[in-house]
Amino acid sequence: MAGQDRTGRFWRSDAASGLILVSPTALYAILLLAVPVAMVLAISFWTQNYLEIDRTFTLKNYAEALSEPLYRQLMLRSLTISGAVTLTTVVLAFPIAYFVSFHVSPSRKSLWIFLITIPFWTSYLIRVFLWKVILGFNGVLNTSLQGLGFIDEPLTFILYNANAVVITLAHAYAPFAILPIFVALEKIDRSLLEASQDLGENRVTTFLRVTLPLAMPGVVAAVLIVFIPTIGDYVTPRLVGGPNGLMIANMIQTQFLKLNNAPLGAALAVIAMVMVSTIALIFVGLNRRYLRGPK
């Protein structure tokens, strides 16, 4: 009786209602995300001959992925490009977030944020393709600069290489970097800045000693939210990267769809995920002291 009563009270409790309500979404994520990712992990330990999958456990794919110079070069390049994209994007984004948060009147802030987010929602493929048009040998940038007399020869270091990938991705991920920093800056109590100046700091030292440390959670979020997805980007390296700008995602696609070597592709995907997560965790760990405090 008492047990029954307790069960009855559990089913009327918050915990039960919450679990029941969240279960459709959670089940969906488990079935279509957790299970598939686990499957990729499993396959990475198998081998494939044409269309036959051999399910004996082996580390052969990992050995190949880690020893073959081509794959190692692609991994390294992906990390370098992602790192460069992250650095560029966040460094370029910070002043914008700062400007909107501190120098735009409150009534116009959401308009600015809206303006910043619009380009992000327009066709990604077409945006990347247009960067190719802008950066190309006869592209908009080169013809304009030549027309204005700044350069004699078209610049060639801006298309079909890693630079082009960095520029294009920095454009694509701009709002992802601006928004978290903006949110962090918005949360800063303005009287803290006045207090700092009242205690003898000037504008620059106030920024360094108060504003920046308080904005760090936003910067960390911006770094992660740019770094993690860019490493898996496929379209940009393919369209503007040229042979020397290809990244790991292009190889994963090739293994899966062209070479019919899903196990090797899976191993590459797993390695990429592990690398990204490791770097992300180290980065969060390094910034631990900024991330504490009340949520």
Binding site: V35, I43, A269, V276
Partner: peptide
Amino acid sequence: GLIMVPLVLPEIIVAVSLLVV
């Protein structure tokens, strides 16, 4: 956390893992 993961997961991972399944 699991439900929100696709927000940061590279899309190619989602694509590949669904393809595998």
